[in-house]
Structure formats: structure tokens, C-alpha cells
Simulated scan of single mutants.
Amino acid sequence: MRHAVLSLALLGLAACGRERAEAPDAVPAAEPPAEAPAAATKTLSPEALYFVGRWAADEGMCADPWIITAQELRTPGHVVCRLERIARTEAGAEAQATCTAEAPPAPYRLRFAYAQSAGALLIENGPFADVGLVRCEGGAYPPPTPLAPGQPGALPDDRTPLSEAPAAPDSPQAAATVLERYFGALAKRDFEAAWRLWSEGAPGRPESPSALAPTLAAYDSYNALIGAPGAAEGAAGSVYVRAPVQVYGRLKDGREVHALGSATLRRVNDVPGASAEQRAWRLHELRLDGAER
């Protein structure tokens, strides 16, 4: 039933925009066709490629999803469309494509529209029935491999084995675990859980969970490695721990991103009257320097 409701809602959205489908600024998704001079085009920002990802008619079908990159669309039914040219439209986006189904390759003008309230994608005008899809977990591209420790832009090559004993709640290792939870929540786009791991009043704390969403909008996949934390240091009733962070991900246009930086976590010292929440490690500051390649 959910699939039917989504499809009807999205088909209605698309019908309103059919007359506006011509694109004002066509851009290449991969290399431009031979007849289109590269100088006359520009690249869509990764944030604009909202349709990149793994999709299915309903969540129960995510084991065999539609996979859409900036260069290609593949359906569970073995339809393959090469996206040769993508353009913005008022309703969303339109792609000139060459699709192969049960017949020889043929040209199509695929139309994409996104219903923000339903979190669903409509695809029209392909070699398949118009369809409404919901997003599945995981990225459309294989995730990149993180840089090996000791390489430029990677974590230090610290071969000191970590203790396998349970970490005390006030230990630096417990602080690093909170940092792992933070990046794990971001990878799942669970912005509410990630935001709750920031200290209230921290200088880098986003205004709200939704303020974290634009940071991940450009990414197809987003991952992080956490290095060995430093020693705890106290100041004015608080305790701070700094840990190195290595982020690696892939943008929705397929480019890799690698960033290296550090995070500072804070907790209130064990002073009388401090609550359990105040004594818990929370993210205080995060600094990353990234490079695309």
C-alpha cells in the first residue's frame, strides 16, 4: 500500500511539471557527446545529483535495488541506461540516455522528480513504467579505500596495540568510541543521533539536526577512521581529549574525497552535582581539511 500511495503522489507531482521539462542549463553527466562542445557545458554540483543512490519500490525490496549513479541507471529487471547528458528542470532533472532492455539500445529522455515530504523519487519516460521509489541504505558507487596509516593525508602509523579491556567511561578510549558513534550516525544519515553527541554550547555544534544534512548532501558514501586518542587534559572543571580523524568518501558524481583532521571531546569533571549527561563525553570541536581526487 505504501508503494501505491507514493507512486500516485509522485505521478501527480510530475504531471504538474511535464510542460516545463526543457532544461535551461544542460550539463554532461560523464563525458559530453561528440556533437556537444565541452566549452558549452558545465558540471552539476554533486548536491544537485539527488537521484544518485540505491532505490526500491518499497523498503522490503532493497535487497535488489535500482542503482543510479551520475553516469548510469540499472534496474533489478536488467534495464541499463547510460546517462549521457543531464539537465535541470523546474520539476527536478532530465537525462538524455541510451537504454538497453529487451531490445537494441534506444534513446530516451528520463525525467527525475523528488518528493521531499515523502522522501521518494519519481522516474518517468524510460523503457519501463513510470515508477516511485524510496531510498535504500548504502551507496551507488563502491566506497573508496582509506589511505593507509603513515601516508600523506592519513592517520599516524601508530602500531601500539589497543587494550581489549572494557574502557572506563571517563577514559580517552571511551571518548574515541563516542566519536566512532558520531561518524557512524552520519554515514547512516541519522542526523538526530549525530547531533545529540555534540556538547551543548560547543563552538562547532550545528544549530539543529537538520543543519547536518547539507554536509552530507553531496556524498554517496561517507566514512571515517578514528586514530588513537591523546591523554585527557583538564581545564576549568572540564576534561578534554583530542583524537585524529581520517574521513574518506565518494561524492555523488563519483569523485573520491579524503580529509584529515582532529576532533576534541569534552566532559564535565567528576564534581559534586554534575549529571550523568554532563559527565559523558561529547563532541566539542571538529576540524577537517579535505581534498577531492
Results as ranks from 00 to 15, higher is better:
1 M>K: 09
4 A>G: 03
7 S>E: 14
9 A>L: 13
11 L>H: 12
14 A>L: 04
16 C>K: 12
17 G>S: 12
25 D>K: 13
27 V>S: 15
27 V>Q: 15
28 P>A: 12
30 A>T: 10
31 E>I: 08
35 E>Q: 14
35 E>Y: 15
37 P>Q: 08
37 P>S: 05
38 A>I: 08
41 T>E: 02
44 L>Y: 03
48 A>C: 01
48 A>P: 00
62 C>N: 05
63 A>L: 08
63 A>C: 01
65 P>I: 10
70 A>S: 15
72 E>F: 07
77 G>A: 13
77 G>Q: 14
80 V>K: 15
87 A>R: 11
88 R>V: 00
90 E>N: 06
94 E>R: 14
96 Q>F: 07
99 C>N: 04
99 C>Y: 06
101 A>Y: 09
104 P>M: 08
105 P>Y: 06
108 Y>W: 13
111 R>T: 07
111 R>N: 04
112 F>T: 01
115 A>M: 05
115 A>H: 15
117 S>T: 10
118 A>L: 15
118 A>K: 14
120 A>S: 11
128 F>P: 08
129 A>C: 00
132 G>E: 04
136 C>F: 14
136 C>V: 04
140 A>W: 15
147 L>F: 01
149 P>N: 07
151 Q>S: 12
155 L>M: 06
155 L>N: 08
160 T>C: 02
168 A>K: 12
168 A>T: 06
173 Q>A: 15
181 R>T: 09
183 F>H: 14
185 A>M: 03
187 A>H: 15
193 A>K: 08
194 A>P: 04
194 A>R: 01
195 W>C: 07
200 E>Y: 01
200 E>V: 08
204 G>A: 13
208 S>N: 11
216 L>Y: 09
227 G>C: 04
229 P>N: 09
237 G>P: 03
240 Y>F: 15
241 V>M: 09
246 Q>N: 13
247 V>A: 03
249 G>P: 04
252 K>I: 03
254 G>C: 05
257 V>C: 04
261 G>D: 01
266 R>L: 05
272 P>Y: 03
275 S>C: 05
276 A>E: 11
277 E>Y: 00
282 R>G: 02
283 L>H: 11
